[in-house]
Design a protein around this nucleic acid. Structure first.
Lengths: 233, 233
DNA sequence: CCCTTTTCACCTAGGTGGTAAGAT
DNA sequence: ATCTTACCACCTAGGTGAAAAGGG
């Protein structure tokens, strides 16, 4: 869908207030979201799939912008084992296909983690083409395919650090590079943020929902080696 | 070797006048140069090997710079066939190893091309990280490994267009991004250029000197499939 | 038992020169 | 005869989930 910007577009700098972002591959994201998207995290860092990519509009073609992403924890609880029907087991077909998997969590227990885990303020990922002119960003789809997720709290590769078995909301930020000398004072006016609910996911070290695994294999070119049949282009 | 900057460092902007560039892999370049370096050009575009890479110093860490390359024709003649001893033939060993192959061109004929061929003013290749701060450029070796050479005069991929069977001198330019409003007026002061004679080469569509082929195979990791023996790391 | 780590076969993506055919 | 093009096997480089091993 279009936009998804946060509350209060008021008081924003003219260079960002008309900015809009359309999520690409929206139908694929929704297909994953219906099942309960999972993203693998590894020590070395793992890409997201689907890749987060957006089509931008409403920027000043001649102004400089920085594009970046961060990830908001959607729960301060930790999901603890035991899917409603066995998780990785082969009999997942008993789940209603119209009900997202995460709604089957009824039977599971949660631990209040008391906000002890996150600690670090959460890293951000700058799009490697930043900074660039608005015209450049709007020319084609902006892809965050270099972004990698890790569960290594001591990671020094600049990857995004997430806690496994926690759910996250990716956020996308457009930041106007303010040429004014005292631009720090306007920092709060110079960016615009976008959240697409269909891109929420749970970080995992191994897939929990076998349907997610199958959809990844079916749609990620790098997993073609695990495909059985031949269908869909 | 160090530097290699053009004539007249006088009248340069302070942000570039102390800039220095050291060619990386100098011994490899010299090894090729002793034989008469050749670079393949194709319709789709071909990388250079060795890759042109430099270590920079003397920049203002906080200033913005653009880095780029262009290629100067070293002759307005066209080399026309017939190496002294058979060119691609197997008996190139008769050439003195201490004499560069291009010095064996005695017996060959040249055509005065009357400057009819070049026409186009010659493309430039901007380093894809441009613009960036001096500190960023100096942090590590700057590599132009994305640069590709083509013989397609109608190329629309932004590759460097060269005439096959002509010799060229790669040039490297450091351009200070002048924040002044009337910066155009100082354009001639805001850059510094570097030429390393050992990086001269002849553009070819197929290797002419079999020793160049063997040195490429021996030193380019992507040509490992054509190696016979095992030596040298 | 639940979760993480490591290794691996199998892919995508793309950079090599060889080779034979094509163009002039 | 000389130069160019197209295709190919063979590499580098790195992104997949499976599977087995490891840890609490």
């Amino acid at each position: 869908g279009w936009a998804g910007e946060g509350p209060g577009a008021s008081g924003k700098n003219q260079h960002v207030c008309h900015a809009a972002a359309r999520l690409e591959m929206g139908s694929l994201w929704e297909e994953f979201n219906r099942l309960g998207t999972e993203m693998i995290v590894t020590k070395a860092g793992r890409r997201m799939f689907p890749t987060f990519q957006v089509k931008l509009s409403g920027l000043d073609p001649l102004a400089d912008y920085v594009l970046l992403m961060d990830f908001i924890p959607l729960d301060d609880k930790r999901y603890r084992g035991g899917w409603g029907n066995g998780g990785r087991g082969p009999d997942l077909g008993v789940l209603s296909p119209s009900l997202p998997c995460r709604y089957a969590f009824h039977s599971s227990s949660w631990l209040a983690a008391g906000r002890a885990e996150p600690a670090a303020p959460g890293r951000v990922h700058f799009h490697p083409d930043s900074p660039a002119k608005g015209a450049q960003w709007m020319r084609q789809i902006v892809s965050f395919d270099k972004l990698k997720l890790t569960n290594n709290l001591l990671d020094d590769n600049g990857h995004i650090i997430l806690n496994s078995m926690h759910r996250y909301q990716p956020r996308f930020h457009v930041v106007f590079v303010d040429p004014r000398r005292d631009s720090e004072r306007f920092a709060h006016q110079n960016f615009k943020s976008f959240s697409f609910p269909e891109t929420q996911f749970m970080a995992v070290t191994a897939y929990q929902n076998h349907r997610i695994t199958q959809l990844k294999i079916a749609s990620n070119p790098f997993a073609k080696g695990f495909r059985d049949g031949d269908p869909e282009p």
